[in-house]
Design a protein around this nucleic acid. Structure first.
Lengths: 97, 97
DNA sequence: CGAATGGTTAAGCACTCGCTTAAGTATTGG
DNA sequence: CCAATACTTAAGCGAGTGCTTAACCATTCG
């Protein structure tokens, strides 16, 4: 999941998909790389659950899967919250003394 | 940033640090790998801005940097929100018709 | 002091990643 | 029908990642 977002090209694709569905060609357009390369990125994104896609005719259309993004967001939020609450308690302790 | 979180061992370290500061040894303990390996992960985490550390005497103590986590969380939140609002508008459109 | 502890540096190695080109396949517009 | 379009598969390659071992440095404890 984080591994899928670790690559800049893939983040670019996710960013594009956050503004609506797109075909493989459209995802490739801003990316200065061959179509097969984009396919491989798409594969990683699909395996991570971040993106879904379906083929109709000869075009494959891709969509974002917000639930997966939510999972990643939550992991971060939990760790950050844990650490911040610890800082808060430390602040309280320092105030008391 | 996401690249730093892409590795499971590093997420383990972040998780540990979210429960309070730790030494390099303590971070290494649950990780079934040598100390130098942990050092390299720590380096990646520091370069990503996720973790800070300082050495006093012969022990290095590591802390989480919540601001950096916040940046990653926000990137995800924005993309997810963009996509969800698009879905909402689609819903409205379908209701209208 | 001298040994144990905690960390650091350097070199090397297997493996994975991101990309390429070349050669397909399947659909569709003229 | 046939040529263009949109993908798909496969093979290969250079660079980067994650780990190791071996050696080393600095601090602390007996």
């Amino acid at each position: 999941m984080f591994a899928a977002l670790a690559d800049g090209s893939r983040r670019n694709m996710v960013d594009r998909l956050s503004r609506g569905p797109a075909t493989v060609k459209q995802l490739a357009e801003p990316l200065a790389m061959s179509l097969p390369a984009v396919m491989q990125h798409l594969r990683v994104l699909e395996e991570s659950g971040l993106v879904r896609s379906q083929k109709t005719g000869r075009v494959r259309t891709c969509y974002l899967e917000p639930a997966a993004l939510n999972a990643a967001e939550q992991w971060i939020a939990e760790r950050r919250a844990g650490w911040l609450s610890r800082l808060d308690r430390l602040g309280d302790f320092l105030e008391e003394s």
